[in-house]
């Protein structure tokens, strides 16, 4: 039974990871950009709850006023497209993103 449960959790994790690769990393490329974005969000919003909320709100309705990136960057590359993911998937992806790249998980 325990073995089955462990296998199930591993399966879910791999599934989520592959989903994250598919929905996020495909377009955003390497980890470096993700690190930079997380640093900026952390610097501005501090707590996990506020960071996740800010990312979600931006991805649902990308506006230059909501963007964490500098205005020069927005002017040059423009605003990204609105996410096509449903709310639940988007929230799950944000959770994985926070888990992988937040400072809290790195500190020792």
């Amino acid at each position: 039974m325990v073995k089955k449960a462990a296998l199930f959790i591993l399966f879910c994790t791999l599934l989520n990871a592959s989903e994250f690769d598919k929905y996020c990393l495909n377009c955003h490329g390497g980890d470096f950009k993700f690190h930079v974005i997380m640093k900026k969000y952390t610097l501005k919003y501090s707590s996990e709850q506020r960071i996740k909320k800010a990312i979600f709100e931006y991805l649902k309705e990308p506006l230059s006023t909501k963007s964490i990136l500098p205005s020069e960057y927005i002017q040059r590359f423009g605003i990204k497209e609105k996410s096509s993911l449903d709310d639940e998937t988007l929230k799950r992806m944000i959770d994985i993103y926070y888990e992988r790249f937040s400072f809290q998980s790195k500190l020792y």
Binding site: H35, Y45, S46, S47, E48, Q49, R50, K106, L107, Y108
Partner: peptide
């Protein structure tokens, strides 16, 4: 940018950090 980041420690005192919430 490391995978692991060491929290600063000092001899004279101890510290903690809390988020906005």
């Amino acid at each position: 940018n490391g995978e692991k980041l060491q929290y600063p420690r000092f001899e004279d005192f101890k510290s903690a950090i809390y988020d906005i919430d």
